[in-house]
Design a protein around this nucleic acid. Structure first.
Lengths: 193, 193
DNA sequence: AGCTTTTAGCTAACGCCATTAGCTAGAGGG
DNA sequence: CCCTCTAGCTAATGGCGTTAGCTAAAAGCT
């Protein structure tokens, strides 16, 4: 019987892909094993269990999202940077809904949890956007939270089918970017507009 | 053997309370049955199963949240209405984290789903807030989505422990209200200010 | 009142899932 | 070529949601 040649990285990657296909809630050890051509208990040689698997998928998602946002912001500033970051973030969540869904409600276990590091990187990417708005130092944490809430809220609501009624969703997102831009600009150090 | 005298409403109410205690993910049929002093299969006389139960809890949460927001807005307009609505919404989510968590990722099955009606009521309450900002008609849907994204994102991130670092969370939320107010005002029909 | 119908709650049983224990055989290092 | 290590296996356990079928409490009817 030939070996499958798995390793933790490959298992987590397959789990993330599977989560995107069937939804984070339906990511099951048995289904993942079947996808990998392996029996369920074999997975325990590579990951600690379902909890650990979800955690690793979430860390992967945050890390990838951070890369996407960080890369998109490169070379832009101010409103352009905001738009690029927001679009990159939403794009990532819509392309990888299962992965990202695994992150909601996931608390880092400790300071050395890879999940915490990945979350930090994503926040760092958004912080770069704020630099272009000249927000007073004591307010940047608040602005960061507002920005993250806005992007996270929109992306998760859309990904969950929460926007059913009339207007076009892409258009709404562009409107949201302009809305955030104006809100942030009004908070810049030298005052309004 | 005396009867417990249950009915769908009582079962859902107990489920919602239990979800707030143990978290939405740990709301199990067996645990709920135990809490109600009944064996697990008996619950199926009142609700269709776990899926149906979650759906009803979610509908209850959206309905209650809509009432909270709608009641808080009464008698206010403009920035005061926005602040009242946002605080009421976040307060509800923090008081009932399990209930509200049941709503995320829940799609209405059809147009006559009670969940859809409850969601509509919550949106209606937020629409009342927007009336005070004199947003041009084609933009109100976008503004509504932005507002909902902002509140939903902040509340779920905080409820999930997503805000770990330095700054005070209540302060951040007040900042967020001011941020939203400025963003909305800049979109009012007669222009800036 | 007594009789009938309905139904809330029960026990028993099934299947799926995550997980653990213990075994076996393939791959790499001397 | 043998020894060690370990990836993957089978078997078994326990918890969960769910269904089928029974029983007795309530409710309705005469």
């Amino acid at each position: 019987m030939p070996r499958a040649g798995l390793n933790p990285t490959a298992v987590v990657a397959a789990a993330a892909a599977l989560a995107d296909e069937v939804g984070a809630a339906n990511l099951t050890m048995g289904l993942l094993a079947e996808r990998l051509g392996v029996r369920t208990p074999s997975l325990y040689k590579h990951v600690g269990g379902q909890e650990d698997l979800n955690r690793r998928v979430a860390a992967l998602a945050l890390s990838e999202a951070g890369d996407a946002v960080g890369g998109a912001v490169q070379g832009y500033a101010g409103r352009d940077a905001l738009a690029a970051a927001a679009r990159a973030f939403r794009g990532y969540v819509l392309e990888h809904p299962g992965r990202y869904a695994a992150t909601v409600g996931m608390e880092p276990t400790g300071p050395d949890d890879p999940l915490a590091a990945a979350a930090q990187r994503l926040l760092h990417a958004f912080t770069a956007v704020l630099r272009g708005y000249d927000i007073p130092e004591p307010d940047v944490d608040h602005a960061l939270r507002a920005l993250r809430s806005l992007c996270h809220g929109f992306a998760t609501l859309q990904s969950a089918g929460g926007f059913q009624w009339s207007a076009d969703v892409d258009e709404s997102f562009e409107w949201l970017i302009a809305f955030a831009d104006r809100g942030l600009r009004s908070y810049a150090r030298q005052g309004r507009r």
